[in-house]
């Protein structure tokens, strides 16, 4: 008994050191992240009165957010755009991650990764604006294609619509998609691939049966890390989306800053997060078999 309590004291002291160290950061996150998130969830159940919020519980905001034609369209569009961006980004990113992991000399890998990450860190606004320039009426794509004589008049379906949003977001989140896949590929023991071929599989079948399943945790991480933030992107739809490219973040901004309807804005925000969470969990559930197994 006496020994047990001594041990408890020791453990408490180890845990205490941990808590003490983590407490400034944790407190900050609780006060400025958890509490605000809780507050908007709370707000989403309140009623918007003139100049102030009425403190009565209601589901009206959610009813409005889910039944109003405009809101529903924007919400579904956001989900669609986010999924398309995720698909495009991850599919385009995989070969790059594969190339860097399997075909680049180990001493040059970090140079490649550095090159891939740099654009991610350079002024997001200006990058988005430049896509407008690239895709615009007199933009790089149109003048290039016209100069080559491939088209006679500028293409208009590439700006101020959903396509432009997808292209721009796919560009913005590329490093986010590449790095988790790269890390997963790096972890694969190369002798497994040799074993696969030794056991009579072709290169391609080895890739399908060995490499791809082992890389899946990275692919799943990529999907989530792209999918979750893109649904809430504001700048890209605002700048290149045009009226038919608006997404949920633009709607939230409108409710908060222009219409001053915090409860409805909150309900839309919470709904968007809810959709993201459900889709992500569904995705994880469908891929659960790749995530089991020994943790390394």
């Amino acid at each position: 008994m006496e020994l047990g309590s001594r041990w408890d004291r020791f453990r408490r002291s180890e845990a205490a050191s941990g808590y003490m160290l983590v407490s400034p950061t944790a407190l900050y996150a609780i006060l400025l992240l958890a509490a605000p998130l809780g507050t908007i969830i709370l707000y989403s159940f309140l009623t918007d009165g003139y100049l102030e919020i009425v403190r009565t519980f209601t589901l009206a905001n959610y009813h409005e957010a889910w039944t109003n034609e405009l809101y529903r369209t924007v919400m579904l569009r956001s989900l669609g755009v986010s999924m398309a961006v995720t698909l495009v980004t991850v599919v385009l990113a995989f070969p790059v991650a594969y190339f860097v992991s399997f075909h680049v000399d180990p001493s040059r890998k970090s140079l490649w990764l550095f090159l891939i990450t740099i654009p991610f860190w350079t002024s997001y606004l200006i990058r988005v604006f430049l896509w407008k320039v690239i895709l615009g009426f007199n933009g790089v794509v149109n003048s290039g294609l016209m100069g080559l004589g491939i088209i006679d008049e500028p293409l208009t379906f590439i700006l101020y619509n959903v396509n432009a949003v997808v292209i721009t977001l796919a560009h913005a989140y590329a490093p986010f998609a590449i790095l988790p896949i790269f890390v997963a590929l790096e972890k694969i023991d190369r002798s497994l691939l040799e074993a696969g071929q030794d056991l009579g599989e072709s290169r391609f079948m080895t890739f399908l049966r060995v490499t791809l399943p082992l890389a899946m945790p990275g692919v799943i991480a990529s999907v989530l890390i792209v999918f979750i933030p893109t649904i809430g992107d504001y700048v890209t739809p605002q700048l290149v989306g045009g009226p038919e490219g608006r997404m949920v973040a633009n709607l939230i901004q409108l409710q908060y800053l222009k219409l001053d309807n915090y409860p409805l804005g909150s309900a839309i925000a919470v709904s968007a997060m809810g959709i993201v969470t459900v889709v992500s969990l569904l995705f994880l559930f469908l891929n659960r078999r790749y995530l089991k197994g020994p943790k390394s």
């Binding site: 605000p36 998130l37 979750i228």
Partner: peptide
């Protein structure tokens, strides 16, 4: 998404 961080902080 940053907009969520932004609006929730704004409200509080």
């Amino acid at each position: 998404p940053e907009i969520i961080v932004a609006v929730s902080l704004l409200v509080v």
